[in-house]
Design a binder for these strands. Structure first.
Lengths: 150, 150
DNA sequence: ATAAAATAAATCGTTCGCGATCTAATCGCA
DNA sequence: TGCGATTAGATCGCGAACGATTTATTTTAT
């Protein structure tokens, strides 16, 4: 492919040229890097993301967690039940609107935050990127996500 | 956070500052964008990636597919069985080394390639990015993946 | 005031993805 | 040559993830 041409079907059909595959495989890579760090907290990677959202703002509905994480209730409900079984959160129907379930941190869930404090640095480290670069790349990808969901 | 400081724990603990979450959620966004395009081919997104690898190079072992896609045999074996059941590939033990399974496209699997020809452009379009940008971003993320797996 | 529409979460069935383990085949080397 | 180590896939159990559907509640419109 020369500079002036638009990419050919041939080029577009190569896995290594897929932006989506770069994302897909890097996502798996992150999961692997997180594994040993999160094992100590007894959390899976998606469970950890839920906890991060709750540490940021406690007492949220399933719906608001889903909006924040881009997940459906069919994904969250079972996950939240697991976190509840582990004692990190409580799930209670909202008295004012019984359709909603309010998800709150337990004492144990709040306490976990301290244990998780050093996780982000461990991850940032594994990327081998400088903080500023990292922020820029993150922002570019978030923008891409917005385009895709539009 | 001022320019001179390194990021605080507080900052690092916010979901929106997580590079990994940008990747995680953008991966899901890609899956959603692919869905309607791949429905016409009766393929899931991961199945499509397997087909792309085979269209690039036919007759590979489970191991080489896994190396290419960063997937384990425990993931691939069931997927390949589904693709076989759909008639797109065949799985045959290698006569020279019976430990290996050779995965080959069927006539139908090769034919599918034409139907899939316009998928990449549809996706590229949905990103709203120019080809050159897209290549650069893809490369940055692939480099990140390499760092993470190191 | 009540029936219809909308909303929130849960449930079900299917596919992915992994780690741990198992089985079968091949290799290495004494 | 033969037996222990290695390798390649397959299997199993578990946790995501989604779409489609269901159930329960609330809102709206008549």
């Amino acid at each position: 492919m020369t500079k002036a041409d638009s990419p050919s079907h041939e080029d577009l059909m190569k896995l290594d040229n897929f932006l989506c595959f770069a994302i897909y495989s890097t996502n798996h890579a992150f999961t692997r890097v997180y594994k040993p760090l999160l094992d100590e907290l007894d959390l899976t990677y998606p469970q950890y993301l839920v906890m991060v959202v709750l540490w940021e703002k406690d007492d949220q509905t399933v719906g608001s967690l889903g909006e924040r994480l881009f997940l459906e209730s069919s994904t969250l409900t079972p996950m939240l039940k697991r976190l509840e079984a582990m004692g990190y959160i409580s799930r209670v129907r909202d008295r004012a609107d019984e359709r909603q379930v309010r998800v709150k941190l337990t004492e144990s869930g709040r306490a976990l935050r301290e244990k998780a404090e050093n996780v982000p640095r461990g991850i940032a480290n594994a990327t081998g990127m400088k903080p500023a670069e990292l922020v820029r790349l993150k922002q570019e990808i978030a923008t891409l996500r917005t385009s895709l969901l539009r």
